[in-house]
Design a protein around this nucleic acid. Structure first.
Length: 258
DNA sequence: ATGGTAGCGCTGCTA
């Protein structure tokens, strides 16, 4: 079973590249983030043609998450478990069961700059995610929470830790918030299979960061141990960050034994 | 180098 995650940065603009990549990589499940589409505009038909069912949680202009699956799509839930019906929340969280695995597609708030109100909101969001997972799931069941965490878990996940000191995505509180997910029982599947440094999933569009190798590994696939132990292969597809109109993120693939 | 680019949507925001 191949599970993938990709922050597509506008599915409207990226649809041709996503279609091309699905045909090439053939994931069984693809979690997407930053679709930037209202649900009424989601191109479900295009994915159906390629053999994928789709669920999506969008809000238009910003955010938006989705899950594609060709191994079933059941028990779909959007948002947090403690969300009130009248609470206005951004479209950043979606769950579904695909081929016996509980899958989450998450788009963690960016945080903008350390100490800003957006940064504080990011930490609150991550703590709420931890509570949601803790109250809804069991570390002994097959669960994978994929997406753009906007956190590089360790210095090995950043191009130059010394230049990033004090910056967002690498601060200790953000890393502790991701660490709390690992403490509950999730495993960073990519890092387990790929211990080498210098592998990133996001590069700023500006200043030629991609070609200069200035990236961060902020797209993660965190799985419970019973599932993580079945992981056999992990790849971040840098080729999908090249060429015409790429997303600023590359897709990541994890393969699991049955 | 306190810059730079992309997307949304039409002015300046978000990333």
């Amino acid at each position: 079973m191949r599970i993938a995650t990709w922050n597509v940065n506008s599915l409207k603009i990226r649809l041709p590249r996503v279609e091309e990549w699905l045909a090439y990589a053939e994931p069984d499940v693809l979690c997407m983030q930053e679709t930037k589409l209202a649900d009424s505009a989601f191109p479900a038909m295009a994915f159906q043609t390629l053999g994928y069912e789709a669920v999506y949680c969008g809000q238009g202009q910003w955010n938006g998450v989705a899950i594609l699956s060709r191994v079933g799509l059941k028990d779909v839930v959007a948002g947090f478990s403690d969300q009130a019906d009248d609470e206005v929340v951004e479209a950043r969280l979606l769950w579904a069961t695909c081929g016996g695995v509980r899958v989450g597609s998450v788009y963690v708030p960016n945080g903008r700059s350390v100490g800003s109100e957006h940064y504080e909101a990011k930490l609150v969001w991550l703590a709420r995610l931890r509570r949601h997972i803790e109250s809804s799931y069991d570390p002994n069941e097959p669960l994978i929470v994929c997406g753009d965490y906007n956190v590089a878990p360790t210095d090995d996940d950043a191009w130059d830790p010394s230049k990033l000191h004090g910056a967002t995505h690498v601060s200790p509180p953000e890393r502790e918030a991701v660490g709390a997910l690992l403490d509950w029982g999730l495993v960073d599947t990519f890092r387990t299979l790929r211990p080498e440094t210098g592998i990133y999933s996001w590069w700023d569009y500006r200043a030629g960061d991609f070609h200069e190798g200035r990236g961060l590994r902020i797209d993660l696939a965190l799985a419970t141990k019973p599932l993580a132990e079945r992981a056999t292969f992990a790849l971040i597809d840098r080729n999908a960050r090249k060429g015409k109109q790429p997303s600023d993120h590359a897709p990541m693939v994890i393969d699991f034994d049955p």
